[in-house]
Nucleic acid binder design. Structure first.
Length: 327
DNA sequence: AATGAAGGCAACCGCAGAAGG
DNA sequence: GCCTTCTGCGGTTGCCTTCAT
């Protein structure tokens, strides 16, 4: 209860630690253990409060502390655990031997958080930004696609050939695109559901990561960059080698853009990019996979036992056949 | 070379929960 | 059951370094 009085005491030194202080604290703890942090400074002959000593020890002097840059694996772990645990830095730190909560927190605030924001993700939910107008360009792009496919025999032929289905290739492709967009919307709407998380990072560098994730975002770029999605799917699977599939097996097709994580004892559904809407160039593949993309069947089941929640948006454009087709 | 901006990190502050009397 | 003390955690700040102009 209440605030610790130790740091309120006047006359105690604050600010950066000197090498002499470090040495004194280190030697004392190595010899006696830290025991009571409150009494430690006096016993060790340090003019610091116990809190400051504890912080210095846990964040800097502890012998098992790992220094240097975070590895890709560590980065992945942080992203994944943060998506599950939120800002529970100490809990995250327990999964990263040698890293302190402070270090992880700093790394998050200075690197990962900014990167997620740049990629259009909400750093708290790890999901694409949920405002409707942000998704509007994609809606428009899909509507345009429908018109274009209907008007372009070459594209239709391509889709029919690639789709492998003799009947209604264009329609199937459009339906698949619609389905994927719907899933995008649904997933955006599900941001408040606890326990649902996504690992956002994939790729070996920030730029590669951005590119990879950008392909999976519900954004105009995501729908038009024909190279992004494969990178996303591939890297997403590569970089989460320890991910498990606690609920249901997922087919390799459906697995694209998906991964599961069981960190911290929590079964977590993870969908890269929140809604792996593939680029439009992949529509033939989408048509091959009538269940939609990797966020389809398992996604809806993860959002509450398979029942899809009612859309929150129909009131915005109830008369648009493109939307009502979904309902 | 000088200066300002931005980034990165160590440390502090204050709150909350656990433990003990 | 209440109060006090201690510990741990997360948010924030401020300093130092690096980069750009």
């Amino acid at each position: 209860m209440g605030r610790s009085p130790c740091c309120d005491e006047s006359g105690l030194k604050k600010g950066p630690w000197t090498p002499e202080e470090d040495e004194r604290l280190l030697q004392y703890i190595q010899k006696n253990g830290h025991g009571s942090w409150r009494t430690l400074p006096r016993l060790a002959g340090l003019n610091r409060c116990g809190k400051s000593c504890r912080l210095r020890w846990t964040n800097y002097l502890r012998p098992d502390i790992k220094r240097g840059k975070f590895s890709q694996e560590e980065e992945q772990t942080i992203l994944h655990l943060h998506s599950v645990l939120g800002n529970k830095w100490s809990a995250i730190a327990t999964h990263l031997p040698g890293r302190t909560d402070n270090e992880i927190k700093n790394f998050w605030n200075t690197h990962l958080k900014k990167r997620l924001i740049q990629m259009g993700f909400d750093p708290m939910t790890h999901r694409p930004r949920t405002d409707f107008f942000a998704a509007l360009p994609q809606l428009i792009a899909l509507a345009a696609l429908r018109d274009q496919l209907a008007a372009d025999p070459a594209a239709s032929a391509h889709l029919q050939a690639g789709g492998g289905s003799a009947a209604g290739g264009v329609d199937v492709a459009i339906q698949a695109a619609k389905l994927q967009y719907l899933q995008c919307l649904l997933q955006s709407a599900a941001t408040t559901i606890d326990g649902i998380a996504s690992t956002a990072a994939a790729g070996s560098t920030a730029d590669a990561e951005a590119a990879a994730l950008g392909g999976a975002l519900c954004s105009p770029q995501g729908t038009q960059d024909s190279t992004a999605a494969p990178v996303s799917a591939a890297s997403g699977q590569q970089l989460l080698p320890s991910c498990t599939f606690p609920e249901a097996p997922v087919s390799s097709e459906a697995d694209q853009g998906l991964s599961y994580g069981g960190g911290a004892g929590v079964d977590v559904f993870v969908c890269h990019g929140g809604a792996s809407l593939p680029p439009l160039a992949d529509l033939s593949d989408a048509a091959n996979n009538p269940s939609g993309d990797g966020c389809s069947a398992t996604a809806s089941s993860s959002f509450g036992g398979g029942a899809v929640s009612p859309l929150p948006w129909p009131e915005f454009f109830p008369d648009d056949p493109f939307i009502t087709d979904f309902l």
